[in-house]
């Protein structure tokens, strides 16, 4: 377990996580989430719809936000709520840097504000509610 009780303080910043936005990640994420919208795997069709390239689907972003939280708090952490809003798309060749800050804690539950910034802006903003196992949260 990476995180102990000390990491569960409001105001605590989570270490950042850099995600390389490769074409493979975008396509693999789309297919693993069963999202076959062409804009997530076919650059030519994406361009015809006004997008410069394929871009990451929301399910992959959602999964990466969840991963960012459980990577930090460890396998005993339980995700209760993930709420995200997308902004600047994740295109191939970019890097998304996830940062997080514990907004508030309530017993063994924390609300974490997450930001994923890429080269063109804020890809994702959101909040995650996570419960830690008793020994870590206490």
């Amino acid at each position: 377990m990476k995180a102990g009780g000390a990491a569960m303080r409001a105001g605590e910043e989570l270490p950042l996580l850099e995600i390389e936005i490769t074409r493979t990640l975008i396509v693999a994420g789309a297919i693993a989430s069963r999202d076959y919208q062409d804009v997530h795997h076919d650059a030519e069709l994406a361009r015809r719809k006004g997008s410069p390239d394929i871009f990451m689907n929301i399910l992959t972003t959602n999964g990466l936000v969840g991963r960012y939280i459980t990577d930090h708090f460890g396998p005993g952490a339980t995700l209760r709520k993930v709420a995200i809003r997308l902004g600047a798309p994740n295109y191939p060749g970019d890097t998304m840097v996830l940062t997080g800050r514990i907004e508030e804690t309530d017993g063994d539950t924390a609300t974490v504000r997450v930001l994923g910034a890429n080269g063109i802006g804020r890809h994702v903003t959101g909040t995650v509610t996570v419960t830690l196992p008793r020994e870590a949260g206490a």
């Binding site: 995600i19 693993a32 989430s33 992959t60 999964g63 990466l64 936000v65 991963r67 396998p75 993930v82």
Partner: peptide, 24 residues
Amino acid sequence: EALGDTNPAYTGPNAIAPPTMLQA
């Protein structure tokens, strides 16, 4: 594999699905 998520909670006999797979 796609998301690079190595959380051991998602493997083994007591595995759960990543909660964020809900929509999938």
